[in-house]
């Protein structure tokens, strides 16, 4: 024996949901009526909702477990005097130079915090020196090349490749 749709009272109820407003009650609907009520739509999108299971590892957690008591803790920035241990305790760095001093440790941490990314690809400061400009333009172009190849846009890929070799020869 099967349930009959509570809405049209004809078709077989295949969608079962529990409602909570204004009071708790169960709903049993057929496919069509559920669609009318805006329910089916949500179930189709379930794939979207449950797609990503990985969660961002929290900075603090990472810091606690990954490098607890390591001898890297005593590495000190000669500009601001902060040790890596102090950074781990407060979560904030002491000066821009720390990114150079602690580069290796920070790269691992940044990778966790930024979905695996370890290389900046965004804006370059207007006043950055020409070496920086060139280096980051190349990074950006190589990324565009990969994208173009992935999308099988070979015309674009060829154009980007030309730009890269032109810039590399300067």
């Amino acid at each position: 024996m099967h349930l009959v749709c509570q809405r049209c009272k004809k078709a077989r109820a295949t969608v079962h949901i529990t409602d909570t407003f204004p009071q708790k009650r169960e709903w049993h609907l057929c496919e069509e009526c559920a669609g009318e009520e805006g329910i089916i739509r949500k179930q189709e999108d379930e794939a979207f909702l449950e797609k990503t299971q990985s969660t961002t590892a929290l900075l603090q957690e990472f810091l606690k477990h990954k490098s607890a008591g390591s001898k890297l803790d005593n590495v000190t920035c000669e500009h601001c005097g902060i040790t890596f241990r102090e950074f781990k305790q407060q979560g904030l760095l002491g000066c821009p130079q720390d990114y150079t001093t602690f580069r290796e440790m920070l790269t691992a941490l940044v990778e966790r915090a930024h979905e695996g990314a370890t290389q900046h690809v965004g804006k370059v400061p207007v006043r950055a020196d020409t070496t920086t400009q060139k280096r980051l333009t190349l990074t950006r172009l190589r990324r565009e090349l990969q994208e173009a190849l992935k999308c099988e846009n070979y015309e674009l890929a060829a154009r980007v490749r030309d730009q890269i070799s032109e810039l590399e020869s300067v």
Binding site: Y99, T107, V110, A117, V121, A128
Partner: peptide
């Protein structure tokens, strides 16, 4: 940025006090 030098690194991009904001 046309008049000020912001802390910037070729790998990490714009440098921030907390590494969760870099790039």
């Amino acid at each position: 940025g046309a008049h000020l030098d912001f802390a910037f690194d070729c790998q990490f991009g714009f440098l921030t006090a907390c590494p969760t904001n870099v790039g």
